[in-house]
Simulated scan of single mutants.
Amino acid sequence: MSSASQNRSWDVHRLPSARGKVFLVTGGNAGIGYFVAEQLAATGAVVVLGSRDAAKAGAAMASIRSRVAGAHLRHLPLDLADLSSLKGAADRLDLGHLDAVVHNAGVAFDDPPRRETKDGHELMFATNHLGHFALTQHLAPLLSAAPAARVVTVGSFAARSERLDLGDLQSREDYRPKRTYGRSKVAQMSFGFALDRHLRALHSTVLSVVAHPGGALDSLTPSRPPIHVTTPGERLRGLPAGLLVQGKDAGAWPIVRAVLDPEVRGGQLWGPKVFGLRGAPRLEPVPAHMADPVVAAALWAASGELTGTDPHLGFARP
């Protein structure tokens, strides 16, 4: 895709119809995930919000329905930090196929202490990466049953400055919250690119694409009460930052394009046009440290061992 064609042919405010398709958005009840769900719902697709909290998912669905007439929405109870629950969650979808999963849900901590899941995994690495890694296996049959399904992994601009420590993936030796979060997103994105290489080797019809929201601030995000409320004062104070970053509604644009655009190809990275921080979605070069096949293979092997998953993640040749 040329730079001109990728931007001229896509309008973030006039999305193509996806009626008849089914999309799962993990963490679809808040933040970037909420706006991804809202925008996908406007295409006529069935959108499933994966969320641990039924009340928050219900509030999110009510908000979407107030803005999208006739929205087709479902809630899937989903806790990515609980690996033993993920197969049951996938089974509860009760679908014949799944056209896309958006691996969006995540946690981020600014301060110590280091937290662990009940399985003994560091919580950010477990939720952001390991949970999605394992969920992919459980969704593989549904994705393979769709004509051209997509796994869209939501990365972060913060991952550009971090590198994986394969000897300390779970930050047992050196836990610094912001760095641990950044490394969990590197792991997610590296897996997203490795997954597409794996799918191509299997001649699968499923694509794996990575997208990131750039810089997305609450103060620049439109209100969606009770999900999110931006006061006039907060919005006014956030206006100067709007020269470089954007709200979470716009942060959803590259992810939504990665789900919907028929021109998107597997193994691509999509982000905002202006310095990778704001603006319409564009195709970006994949950073070398996220495309390193040796690092990706080591991460894949470690992730499989930690989650007890099939080395092929349940995908087979069509």
Rank of each mutant, 00 (worst) to 15 (best):
T43Q: 02
V47L: 08
G50T: 01
D53F: 02
A55F: 02
A59L: 07
A60C: 11
A62Q: 15
S63A: 15
R65W: 07
S66M: 04
S66P: 04
A69Q: 12
A71Y: 08
H72P: 00
R74W: 11
H75K: 05
H75E: 14
H75M: 08
L80H: 09
A81D: 11
D82G: 00
L83S: 03
K87V: 00
G88K: 07
G88I: 05
A89K: 09
R92A: 15
G96P: 06
H97E: 15
L98V: 04
A100D: 13
A100V: 03
V101K: 00
N104Y: 11
G106Q: 07
A108E: 09
D110K: 15
P113L: 13
R115M: 14
R115L: 15
K118L: 14
K118V: 13
H121A: 12
E122T: 04
M124G: 01
F125D: 06
H129C: 05
H129R: 07
F133N: 01
F133Q: 02
L135I: 03
H138W: 14
H138R: 10
L139Q: 09
L139H: 07
A140R: 00
L142R: 07
L142G: 03
L143M: 07
A149K: 00
V151M: 01
V152D: 01
V152C: 01
T153G: 10
V154P: 00
V154H: 00
S156M: 06
F157P: 02
R160T: 10
R163Y: 07
D165F: 05
L169A: 13
R172Q: 14
E173Y: 03
P177W: 03
P177T: 04
P177S: 05
